[in-house]
Structure formats: structure tokens, C-alpha cells
Design a protein around this nucleic acid. Structure first.
Length: 304
RNA sequence: GGUGCGGUAGCUCAGUUGGUAGAGCAAAGGACUGAAAAUCCUUGUGUCGGCGGUUCGAUCCCGCCCCACACCA
């Protein structure tokens, strides 16, 4: 019996993950699970570089257009969703494909997250509101008092982490540190992790082209329609925040475009910083996707 | 041609009552287990427009020149 295998394609934004995934999905006659924290939202289209509609119709995709922006989606949501999706794919196929650039989501899928109770939304809302009002000093004091364990070793200058620690403490009465065992779960299928990379000048050029293309396709119009939802997490996204600023009259359209390009570059850099640490990834030059295909074929043969 | 305001880090600018200079953004590196396209940390030598003068010492004061902008002719 052939072992079930998922081919995971990752790398920075605008290297060409999507088109490689589609090629492989065709070749192995299977489906794709997107590992992208923004493409899952129906309302976000031009700005998040979804696969073209024809391809979405040709090949089944999971976690694309699967949610609406008012839903809360996070790494835990993805883990559950993606585990369900692979098992459905594996019930009919031996190979599945995952493609995306959200490192935390991919890790959640591959290794699992430590189980922490679901915190009711209201708990966080209160903390966020209090933080907005009273600021960092208050947050520090709260966490130092309520969760000294986290305060001693956590990222105490990062408000998001502090607020997360606080909500877990308030709701469960235990430090988030006690939950975070960093235990890797072993999945009952095998994985081939592929990284696509590109010389930084070339990647910059790709980003530039892609952003210009998004503008031509009408990104500004898409963003304008979503302006009333700007407070939602789904819209704290490169391409959207900069255009909101433009519609506020703070910056010109050209400035917004330049900012989108710069922020996309910074995002790509953060992605590389994350992925470089994953020693299971085999890297390929994005210009030689045929090498990837050959390598995948070889690996799958060995497995048989 | 005259007057005014400027010329400081890749960009936008702050500053030094004369002791060779600093923020934001960019850039580079890094962290990150339920906000992750998010969030956070680290890294700043640049003929302070050019040439001369005053001074122990000038980017800062003075003179001339060049460049940009505005206004007046």
C-alpha cells in the first residue's frame, strides 16, 4: 500500500507557489489546501493574490473562500480545517498538496498546536479595550501581577503576546507557559516540504509587478468597498491598510502603492526568516520548477 | 536682475547659544504556538552644497559662488 503523502510548497510571497501547486495537482490528479491566512476570506480577492478563477474551478481548493471576514480565523482554526481536508483528500487519493506562505499555519498543520482552551471573544475584547485606553504600562503591570511566569521569559514588549498571555490567564487561571509544551504531534501520513526561493532582486521585481498588476485590476475599488470593516483582523493586511490611509487623505495613491511594495518586501523577508529555520524544507530556485517536479517524482517512487 | 527661504544618512526632516550630529521611513539581520500579510527586537560616519575668512576649533558666525523653491521686477 502506498503511504499517504502531502507535498507542501512554501516560500515568500510572489515566488510562484500557486502555479507550481497547480501544476503538481494536475500531474497527480489531486486537490490543494491553501496555507494562507488571508486567501480564506471571500471578500478579499485582488489584494491577496488568489489563484485565478479558472484554476479554482479546475482543481478543488481548500481554505480558499472558505470563510468570511467577520469570522475569527487563527492558527487553531487552520489546523482543524486542514486536518479535516487532508483526511478527505486521502480517502480518495494518495497524494495531497498544500501551498502557502503562512509559516505558523504550516507548522500547526505539520506538528500540531498545544491544546489551549478556546477563550471566549469577550475576554479578549475587554483586554484590547483596556489596553487601548490605558496603554503599555497597564498591560505590563497586569501581566507581571497575574502571570509572572510569562512576564519573566515572554516577549514583554510585544503587546499581542502580552494580551494573549493575559486572556489565557484570566480565563483558565493558568499561565500560557504551562500550556505551551511544544510537543510535536506525529501525523499518520508523510510530508515533503519544498521551499521556493528567489534572488532578492528578482523577488523585489516580482513584488513590484504584482502590486502594479493589483492596482490595474482595481485593488483600490475593492479596498474602498471594505472600508467599514477596516477594524477586523482580516483587513489588517498589506495592500489594504495602506489604501485605507489613502482614503483617509493621509497619503496619495502613489505613496500608498509605494508603501504596499515596501511592506510586501518586509513581509517576504519575515517569511524567509521563519522558513529558513525549518530544516525539513528542501529548497529550490523558483526559476527551475522542473527540478522540483523531478525531485518530487523521485521521492514518491522511493516511498513506494 | 532683486528679495526671501532652503541645501544635513537612500528619502522626509530635526539639531548643534561654535567642541565634527539624530529621529521617522527605507535597508540589513533576528524573534515569534490561537491577531502571523499580524506583532515585536537589534543595527545610523554622513566631504552637515562648494571655496575662502574669523577662531585653539566651524556643519553652526562672515564673504563669495553653485543649486532648488517662492515672491517682486
Amino acid at each position: 500500500m502506498i503511504p499517504k503523502t502531502i507535498i507542501i510548497i512554501t516560500g515568500p510571497t510572489a515566488v510562484g507557489k500557486t502555479s507550481l501547486a497547480i501544476d503538481l495537482a494536475r500531474q497527480y490528479n489531486t486537490s490543494i489546501i491553501s496555507a494562507d491566512s488571508r486567501q480564506c476570506f471571500q471578500e478579499l480577492n485582488i489584494g491577496v493574490a488568489k489563484p485565478p478563477r479558472v484554476h479554482l474551478e479546475e482543481i478543488p481548493h481548500f481554505f480558499i473562500n472558505s470563510h468570511v471576514i467577520t469570522q475569527e480565523v487563527h492558527a487553531g482554526t487552520f489546523e482543524g480545517y486542514a486536518m479535516d481536508a487532508v483526511s478527505r483528500i486521502f480517502s480518495e487519493r494518495d497524494i495531497a498538496i498544500m501551498a502557502g506562505g503562512t509559516g505558523l499555519y504550516i507548522r500547526a498543520f505539520c506538528e500540531g498546536l498545544d491544546s489551549i482552551p478556546q477563550i471566549p471573544a469577550g475576554v479578549r475584547q475587554q483586554i484590547v479595550a483596556q489596553y487601548a485606553q490605558s496603554g503599555m504600562e497597564w498591560l505590563h503591570q497586569e501581566v507581571e501581577k497575574k502571570d509572572p511566569l510569562f512576564f519573566a521569559e515572554g516577549e514583554i514588549r510585544n503587546p499581542q503576546r502580552l494580551m494573549r498571555a493575559l486572556e489565557v490567564m484570566i480565563y483558565t487561571g493558568k499561565s500560557i507557559r504551562e500550556f505551551q509544551q511544544q510537543k510535536k504531534i506525529t501525523r499518520n501520513f508523510s510530508m515533503l516540504k519544498i521551499g521556493l526561493e528567489l534572488d532578492s532582486d528578482l523577488l523585489k521585481r516580482n513584488i513590484q509587478h504584482r502590486v502594479d498588476e493589483m492596482i490595474e485590476k482595481g485593488l483600490a475599488g475593492e479596498v474602498r468597498q471594505l472600508i467599514t470593516y477596516r477594524g477586523l483582523n482580516a483587513l489588517r493586511t498589506v495592500g489594504y491598510t495602506e489604501l485605507f490611509e489613502h482614503f483617509d487623505g493621509k497619503i496619495s495613491l502613489n505613496e500608498a502603492i509605494e508603501k504596499i511594495k515596501a511592506n510586501t518586501r518586509a513581509y517576504a523577508k519575515r517569511q524567509m526568516t521563519w522558513f529558513k529555520k525549518d530544516k525539513e524544507i528542501t529548497w529550490f530556485d523558483a526559476r527551475n520548477v522542473d527540478d522540483v517536479k523531478k525531485w518530487v517524482e523521485l521521492k514518491l517512487k522511493i516511498k513506494n
